[in-house]
Amino acid sequence: MALRVFLLFTLGYFLSYFYRSANAVLAKDLSAEMGLGPAELGFMTSLFYLAFASVQLPLGGLLDRHGPRLITPAFLLLAALGSLVFGLAQSFPLLALGRALIGVGMAAALMGALKAFSLWFPRNYATVSTLLVGLGATGGLMAATPLAFLKEALGWRGVFLVGSGVVVLVALAIALGVRNTPKGVAWPQGGGVGGLREVLGNGPLLRVAFLALAFAGSFLALQTLWAGAYGYALGLSALEVGNLLLLYSGGAVLGFLVSGYLADRLGTARVLLFSALLFALGLLFLLLKVLLPAYALLGFFGAFNILTLTQARELVPAHLVGRATTLVNLFGIGGTFLLQWGVGVAVGALGYGAAFLGLLGLLLLGVGLYLPLLRKG
């Protein structure tokens, strides 16, 4: 049963990662067919993250009270509806609505898995959780070069219509195939409304959350849109852009797979800080248009942002894991919305150089605020 729990939640997160990343490859087609400018494209794509972030805190309470077996599939069905709306949309408002519904629905994919794993795999939580993310992040690989070919065969609308049916099947598999806890393990009790106040008043947790805003927000804003759009702006072909995104997403998969292992042995705070600084180096290379090292560094070390979620679990008791991880994820995904949209506005007004410099400055601010946790560790 433990292996089934791991595999089904990983499949759900694979779909979440695919959907969040797909617009990077489809940006040119969406802009051409729907008449979207950079700001509109950035806003529409970022609605995934705005919707995703808006449900994080109530989602945490639902997961802590009712468990991921029912909550995750219920949310996934909303994502299936959103995929259907997006694929059929003939106007910008409907396109935006579909993207937002996908974001709401996919909100429970990772958070439900982390809640389940805190009870199924308590002794090696960081390693198993980052293994989940590493395997699930192959959805980003699917949304790179393979999606470029799939789009040519089905069209971008066909991709979303077929995807809707796949999401429904995965939702049913989770509802019918997993348990909230192993046999003999009681469901943790406690932490009602006061539990939310407790996590909001946790100073170290808030420092982790701000780092998630800068680190995860930049990583995902680039991977899921602007790393692809930047390649097109430099005059690269769709296949060349797909290959760069494959490098980015392939590096991310490797980063996710090793980050938990390193954190369990070297300390979460130390590994998280080191990776954030190397991600900053990748942003510097991006500014200098040194593309191959930039995409490799941004993908591999950007993936270590997932340690903000595993560290959140270290800072609270078991009955608050859902709320603590969703709080940190609220900052990370909310940051992705703000940064993905903000980069579009900055690109339209000042160009890519200014936009990437802004991401670099925000990340260094997050690192500075995080430093007391390293000293404490």
Rank of each mutant, 00 (worst) to 15 (best):
G332F: 04
G302V: 06
L220D: 11
G217K: 14
G203R: 15
A263T: 07
N202G: 05
V290Y: 13
S249D: 02
A269P: 06
G260E: 01
V208I: 14
Q223Y: 05
Q223K: 13
A252Y: 08
G250C: 10
L292H: 02
D264F: 02
A318T: 11
A318P: 07
V199W: 02
L278H: 03
A238K: 14
L307H: 03
A252Q: 10
Q311H: 14
R323S: 10
L298V: 08
E198L: 13
T268Q: 10
L297E: 02
L236F: 15
A269V: 05
L225T: 08
L239A: 14
A216N: 10
L284S: 09
R313L: 05
L220V: 15
A280M: 12
L307P: 06
G217W: 14
V290K: 10
T326H: 03
F256Y: 15
G195F: 08
A294T: 03
D264R: 06
I306C: 13
R265A: 12
L234H: 06
G217I: 12
T308N: 14
L211D: 02
L266C: 06
L220N: 14
F279N: 05
Y295T: 09
L213R: 05
L283H: 02
V271I: 07
R197I: 05
E198Y: 10
F215Q: 08
S259A: 00
G231P: 07
A238S: 15
L247W: 01
L234Y: 04
G302C: 10
R265N: 13
L287T: 08
G235L: 08
Y261G: 04
L327P: 01
W226D: 10
G302Q: 10
A296Y: 00
L277R: 10
L309T: 01
I333N: 15
Y248T: 00
R197V: 09
L273V: 14
N202I: 03
R197C: 06
A233C: 01
G255T: 12
A214H: 04
V253K: 12
L284M: 08
G335H: 01
L273R: 13
V208K: 10
L291V: 12
T308L: 01
A233P: 01
G332D: 07
G242M: 09
T310G: 13
G334V: 08
Q311I: 07
G335D: 04
A296W: 00
A263V: 08
L278A: 02
L330Q: 09
A296V: 01
Y232W: 05
I333C: 03
L283V: 06
L257W: 05
L245C: 02
A312R: 12
L262V: 00
T224W: 03
R265S: 12
A216K: 02
F274W: 12
A212T: 09
L211W: 04
G335I: 02
L298K: 07
A280K: 13
D264A: 07
L291I: 11
P204D: 03
G267M: 07
R265C: 11
V271A: 01
A214R: 04
G217F: 14
A227E: 01
A209I: 11
T325C: 04
G250Y: 12
